[in-house]
Nucleic acid binder design. Structure first.
Length: 324
DNA sequence: AACACCGTCAACCGCCCCGAT
DNA sequence: GATCGGGGCGGTTGACGGTGT
């Protein structure tokens, strides 16, 4: 096999790294920095591909790496973030200081995946696996989960295909008595203004004036918020479902479909709230509860609610939750 | 002891994105 | 706009060690 372009011209060594090679690479990078990876092999006196050097540094030699097995807390973080982002190991690893994408990926494939399956959960969707599709040697946990429900908690994913009119999207199937919302409009001293507040940390994540004045004001209002990092405008809230991805939330009167696009966080009120989005002039965002039901979101909604079409998957990069 | 099987993990491969030319 | 090279990423492979037969 020819190998990668960057090293096709030179004779390169493959396979495990020797301690001598590690020492050469470590010494070179600590002295000179890595600069251009493609030039590293020559400068460091290594018969390796630049990509191989980069990988060895990132996955093994980097001084800030955290060694040892994953803690339960780390495992939970991986599961939670994977539920939102899918197999985006590099993104997931960013939530775990000192861990690499390769490490997270291996841990997922060797441990977590099996654990979820043994609990009757689909490791891809995090939904409950229907009884008839489960492995015959199901555990007790499996059976318990099976008794609770035969249907996925959330069914929006299957509806989120291209070019489906928003009107055709049915509200997700959720348990009764949930009064949850992820966003709360807070009137400000300026009558025409209102803020949208992240109920997790009370940070203001968006203000309608920003959207009115600037169509694309990423992070300009609350750069510290991770809810999500990129939030700018909802002024195009009528965009069709084909250009959004997101998840639904049930309210007593309507549900909102949230979505992310490359630059936008879109809020879509659909049932009984098809007129204006102006929070100051309508009550459509006056949800039933002022408190944020974190457990609900974690255990139920997020189990299957996140949905993103393949062609929009990159827009989910910035979609991250911070429960701290 | 020998072998098969399995899990783990380091490393590679191929693809994609992006900036430079 | 097309091409190229570098960097980054996810999927996959294969070596290796542990365990069971």
């Amino acid at each position: 096999m020819a190998g990668h372009r960057c090293c096709s011209k030179q004779k390169v060594k493959k396979g495990l790294w020797s301690p001598e090679e590690d020492e050469k690479l470590l010494k070179h990078i600590t002295t000179h920095g890595h600069g251009s990876w493609s030039s590293i092999p020559k400068l460091a006196g290594l018969q390796r591909c630049g990509k191989s050097c980069r990988l060895r540094w990132i996955n093994y030699l980097r001084p800030d790496l955290r060694r040892g097995s994953f803690t339960e807390e780390e495992e939970q973080i991986i599961i939670d973030v994977h539920r939102i982002l899918g197999n985006r190991w590099a993104q997931i690893a960013k939530h775990l200081p000192g861990r690499t994408d390769n490490e997270v990926k291996n841990f997922w494939n060797s441990c977590i995946k099996k654990k979820l399956l043994s609990q009757g959960l689909d490791p891809t969707t995090h939904n409950l696996i229907p009884c008839h599709l489960r492995a015959p040697n199901s555990s007790n946990n499996n059976k318990m989960a099976c008794n609770q429900s035969n249907i996925p908690v959330f069914t929006l994913n299957s509806q989120m295909t291209s070019n489906v009119p928003l009107e055709n999207i049915k509200p997700p199937l959720l348990p009764n008595n949930y009064h949850s919302t992820l966003i709360q409009p807070i009137p400000t001293s300026t009558t025409s203004d209102y803020n949208y507040q992240n109920p997790i940390n009370n940070n203001i994540v968006w203000n309608n004036n920003i959207a009115n004045n600037n169509d694309c004001c990423q992070n300009s209002y609350d750069p510290t918020s991770t809810f999500p990092d990129v939030i700018s405008s909802i002024d195009d809230h009528r965009r069709p479902i084909s250009s959004t991805s997101g998840f639904g939330l049930l309210d007593d009167n309507y549900y909102s479909l949230w979505g992310t696009t490359n630059n936008y966080m879109v809020v879509e009120p659909t049932c009984g709230a098809k007129d204006s989005l102006d929070g100051i002039n309508s009550n459509k965002y006056k949800m039933g509860s002022s408190s944020f039901d974190l457990e609900f979101v974690e255990s139920t909604l997020m189990s299957g609610a996140i949905c993103a079409r393949d062609d929009l998957i990159s827009s989910m990069d910035d979609f991250a939750w911070n429960f701290n």
